[in-house]
Design a binder for these strands. Structure first.
Length: 330
DNA sequence: AACTGCCTCAACCGCTCTAGT
DNA sequence: GACTAGAGCGGTTGAGGCAGT
């Protein structure tokens, strides 16, 4: 049995607020305040509205100094940076933007900002695809075949990226046990692969005895790109269900051994490199880790976030997250 | 002018958190 | 500690507006 409703649904008006209702609510709150009890408020005023509805109307619309629409570039940057850092915690983001409500920011993100940025991503990948297609694709190879190859390759790199991020990023899933029950990126990838496998043959990342050459190659490149060295054998766990290696990556000796035998046959194409670059964006779009239960001080968290933004080429968005820690906003 | 599809955003829903008892 | 009620939050919905055909 669920909890009792907060109000009598049958006698409560829903839908858009009339100017009269707005005036009543605004006048009352400006004169008496909310009294710390939104549920009782509509009865006092004589409004046939749910208390929650009154609260929402006041906070999102009637409250003084509310700004609507017309987000500036700076506000865009703040929203992007914070979204990357903390995810969809709209109330926290709204707290950094005076006059903006969480609802407003949420709507703005979902309807415009996300599309704006994703559109940019799509444009760049589309452009790289076109240039590659001009140079390399044989006649008669259709787009679907190309996309299939692209997708399987992208999934491999997503898997690698998550693993590598686990070693690199102290806030990552693998290095933060507090995150474990919330979300498992490995499972997300596996689920994604499973669903895609319904339609196409995805090459699953494989254990060291039979690694996917392209995956290994790209992983090594990734290590090089990030000045990252595998110096010791890390704790190796294999998922019982899938056989997929989790919580670690291959050792340098494994990589060297394998690469000496097979790397000569598999050189990453320009398209793979270009796609790898674009995957930096994908990572943070898929970065849904829940930091709500994290431990540790916010300053170090923000510092990590800032570094992460820099790492992913987002530092130019122009907002210094460190400001937030200085003001103690998060 | 009529139709259709897309976009925006105010409002709702249902869940979690928190304070009081 | 258990329970309850209100506050707060994020995800989702749907009405209205707009642009394209």
């Amino acid at each position: 049995m669920g909890r009792a409703p907060c109000c009598d649904k049958a006698n409560v008006k829903k839908g858009p607020w009339s100017p009269e209702e707005d005036a009543k609510l605004k006048a009352y709150i400006e004169k008496y305040g909310t009294g710390g009890n939104w549920i009782a408020l509509p009865q006092k005023i004589g409004l046939r509205r749910c208390g929650k509805s009154c609260r929402l109307r006041w906070l999102n619309y009637l409250r003084p100094n509310i700004k609507h629409g017309g987000f500036t570039e700076e506000e865009d940057s703040i929203i992007c940076n914070l979204y990357i850092s903390i995810g969809s915690r709209w109330s926290v983001i709204a707290a950094q933007l005076p006059g903006r409500t969480d609802n407003d920011i949420k709507n703005y993100w979902n309807t415009r900002l996300k599309k704006k940025l994703l559109g940019r991503h799509k444009q760049s990948t589309h452009a790289s695809r076109l240039s590659i297609a001009d140079d390399q694709s044989p006649k008669g190879v259709d787009d679907n075949a190309y996309l299939q190859n692209l997708s399987s390759s992208a999934l491999e790199r997503l898997q690698l990226h998550v693993q590598l991020q686990g070693l690199q990023n102290p806030f990552s899933f693998y290095n933060n046990p507090a995150l474990w029950p919330k979300l498992n990126p490995q499972k997300m990838i596996q689920n994604l692969q499973y669903s895609l496998n319904e339609n196409q043959n995805i090459i699953m990342p494989q254990a060291p005895h039979s690694p996917n050459p392209t995956a290994v190659r790209l992983q090594q490149e990734y290590c090089t790109m990030n000045n990252f060295k595998v110096t010791e054998q890390l704790n190796t766990n294999t998922d019982i269900d899938t056989g997929v290696k989790t919580g670690s990556t291959y050792t340098q000796s494994e990589l060297d051994d394998f690469l000496s035998k097979e790397a000569a046959n598999v050189q990453p194409t320009e398209s793979q490199i270009a796609e790898f670059d674009c995957f930096r964006n994908v990572e943070w779009w898929s970065n849904e880790f829940d930091y709500s239960s994290r431990s540790g001080d916010s300053a170090s968290f923000l510092h990590q976030s800032e570094e992460m933004c820099q790492e992913y080429g987002l530092g130019t968005l122009g907002y210094n997250l460190q400001n937030l820690s200085q003001t103690g906003s998060i």
